[in-house]
């Protein structure tokens, strides 16, 4: 329902004198149905958000209260969970793990955006031998279950001597290893008319200059989504670090959270929950920051004509 209230009100004022009983009943029925709709939406929304609210609430509870009460509002709010959780049971603070995550995410996101844009540009705009075959195999890798390649990949990286480094985690992405992103960008590029690129070529730009000065700016909304997805997936990736990283000092956040469960006998749930809340924050912040550019990008990227 997107009719502004004022319009509705003035419309009502106009028809008021001639309102008979049936139309009054109609308005009442409409209000009723709106009430039911919103109640339902709010209830379902609350149910969906409940685990998250509980998580945030529980992170401020004492360990005993977590299991003692059902409500999510802490009785005696305490920062204990955060203080102790941050220190961890290892020689490192949680700050270290955040930094590690950052060291993986940064190159991975940047190189994904660059490499996928290059490859997608190639597929979308150039003719070359075996293009169809190559594109088909790219799509085929999308359908390949991840598990299948785990072991060969592990052996490859072990032979390269890359175990317990971050290289296995981001180098594949730097060579457009994420077929999904390439596919997404190719689709996006196909929808952009070529006129601008042709104009740039007439203006004397070579293929790379056309890519950098013309295509990338128009592709920005899509590139931001790519970066956003890559950021979130990497932040949440548990299996990759688990397989390739063995020393605690290089653990990212996802592994470190698990670590606090492993090492203590009686789990301090409030510490784990507190750190989980912190682990959620970067993704949330980045998402809300990028959202603005995302929307802006779409509106300026729109092509007139």
């Amino acid at each position: 329902m997107s009719i502004p209230d004022t319009t509705l009100a003035s419309a009502k004022a106009l028809v008021a004198p001639v309102l008979d009983d049936t139309s009054r009943a109609q308005i009442r029925a409409e209000r009723m149905s709106a009430f039911v709709r919103y109640t339902l939406l709010i209830t379902v929304g609350f149910l969906m958000l409940y685990p998250l609210l509980w998580l945030v609430g529980a992170s401020f509870k004492t360990n005993s209260e977590i299991f003692g009460s059902i409500g999510f509002i802490p009785q005696e709010p305490t920062l204990d969970g955060y203080r102790k959780g941050w220190e961890t049971s290892t020689p490192y603070t949680f700050g270290r793990f955040f930094w590690n995550t950052f060291l993986i995410i940064l190159p991975k996101t940047i190189f994904t955006a660059i490499s996928c844009a290059l490859v997608a540009y190639g597929f979308a705009r150039f003719e070359f031998p075996y293009k169809k075959l190559l594109f088909a195999s790219l799509i085929a890798t999308l359908l390949l279950p991840n598990v299948v390649t785990r072991i060969p990949q592990y052996i490859l990286f072990r032979d390269l001597g890359w175990l317990d480094t971050y290289l296995p985690l981001w180098v594949p992405s730097a060579f457009a290893g994420d077929a999904f992103f390439v596919f997404m960008l190719v689709q996006f590029l196909r929808a952009i008319p070529r006129d601008m690129e042709e104009a740039a070529r007439v203006d004397g730009a070579n293929s790379l200059q056309t890519l950098i000065y013309i295509v990338v700016p128009m592709l920005m909304p899509a590139l931001i989504s790519v970066a956003l997805f890559q950021f979130m997936w990497t932040m949440n990736d548990f299996l990759g670090p688990l397989i390739y990283l063995s020393s605690v000092q290089s653990f990212p956040v996802s592994l470190a959270l698990k670590l606090s469960i492993d090492t203590t006998e009686a789990f301090d749930w409030n510490r784990i929950l507190a750190m989980s809340v912190l682990a959620l924050l970067p993704a949330l912040i980045v998402f809300f920051m990028a959202q603005r550019y995302f929307i802006e990008g779409i509106s300026t990227g729109g092509v007139k004509g």
């Binding site: 008319p193 006129d195 601008m196 104009a199 990227g301 729109g302 007139k304």
Partner: peptide, 11 residues
């Protein structure tokens, strides 16, 4: 060259 759809660089 001048194109039918102007082909101005939108950004």
């Amino acid at each position: 060259m001048v194109f039918q759809n102007y082909a101005l660089y939108p950004h």
